[in-house]
């Protein structure tokens, strides 16, 4: 009972932040739930005076909700949406995006963990990829936060300016769909950007984005493998097992695919709560200590990736 009393304040605040974020994100599709949760959490954390009272509850929320959210997120992975001919493109962009971001990040002097987080966010699905990969890397909360904010920023920028690309460059709707589906980090941003060119473009872009999201499974396996080699001990947390199981189940079981709609909000809320806890537990100053380097990295990487994809699309004449 005493333990429950100890975590109550922090848990309450965390859940409140998560709820508010959840409601806010539902207002518009560009409002990414995870980013709002963490940013809002950071704001609230900075305003609170005696944070020690809430720390126990915040940490408890993080420990409880993050694994659940990650595990359930496996239901998001869908391999069969897009046509097979797009697989190489998506795979190629995934690889190029990840390694470009990673190496640019390393060139800017950022550490390996942050580089992997930025690479994950750029190559897969922004916030979700970062949130799934972060515990596997044992990354600091500050790194998780700055990676999320940086990816969000570049995604928002892309979301606003992509709609002018067809007029400026004469890019075909198909290519635009591929471009937006493979290079914009977040799902909502893809939808907003692609919707400007019509429902077909939107549909293809969404399918490509979903396919890209499914590559998270490969990324997760790769991170597990390299972390195991580094630590000389291969360990798959239970939530990753759940993640893999549900990812497989949703693709091969219609029943599971059927209940995805009911379970998916639970996963999203869990992740939101976890990120709210992260935001509540970090110090803003520690984020600013990294400087503007992460932002520069993602913008530069994004520029390189977009240019490369644009050129490749023109060359291969999809």
């Amino acid at each position: 009972m005493g333990k429950l009393k100890g975590i109550f304040p922090g848990l309450t605040v965390t859940l409140l932040v998560a709820i508010i974020s959840f409601l806010t994100s539902s207002l518009h599709q560009s409002f990414d739930l995870l980013v709002i949760s963490i940013v809002f959490g950071m704001l609230v954390s900075s305003l609170l005076g005696e944070k020690e009272v809430f720390l126990d509850g915040i940490n408890a929320a993080l420990r409880f909700f993050l694994p659940i959210g990650i595990g359930i997120y496996g239901l998001q992975l869908e391999f069969g949406g897009a046509e097979m001919k797009f697989w190489p493109i998506v795979a190629g962009v995934f690889i190029v995006a990840f390694f470009t971001t990673y190496f640019v990040s390393r060139a800017f002097g950022l550490d390996r963990t942050l580089s992997v987080l930025l690479g994950s966010g750029m190559s897969i699905c922004g916030a979700s990829a970062i949130v799934v990969v972060a515990p596997l890397l044992d990354s600091k909360k500050e790194d998780t936060s700055i990676a999320l904010i940086s990816i969000l920023t570049v995604g928002l920028t892309g979301m606003l300016i992509y709609k002018f690309l067809p007029q400026m460059t004469g890019i075909s709707p198909l290519k635009f769909a591929i471009l937006s589906g493979t290079t914009l980090p977040m799902f909502g941003q893809v939808k907003v950007a692609a919707a400007a060119l019509g429902p077909e473009v939107l549909s293809l872009a969404v399918k490509l984005k979903l396919l890209r999201i499914s590559f998270l499974i490969f990324l997760a396996c790769g991170v597990l493998f390299f972390m195991g080699r580094r630590k000389k001990r291969f360990y798959i947390p239970w939530f990753m097992v759940l993640f893999f199981v549900l990812a497989a189940a949703v693709n091969f079981s219609e029943t599971v695919a059927g209940i995805r709609g009911a379970v998916e909000p639970v996963g999203r809320f869990s992740l939101a709560t976890a990120l709210a806890a992260i935001g509540l537990s970090i110090d803003v100053d520690s984020i600013t200590d990294k400087g503007a380097s992460p932002l520069l990295v993602v913008f530069l990487s994004w520029g390189i990736i977009v240019t490369m994809v644009f050129l490749i699309l023109n060359v291969i004449n999809v």
């Binding site: 920023t153 928002l156 606003l160």
Partner: peptide, 24 residues
């Protein structure tokens, strides 16, 4: 509305980031 909301959200986030770095 979509455009403006996105723009506002974008501006809010940028403001937040700017304030963070500038305040730093």
């Amino acid at each position: 509305i979509d455009t403006f909301v996105s723009l506002v959200f974008y501006i809010f986030i940028l403001s937040f980031i700017a304030s963070l770095f500038l305040s730093r």
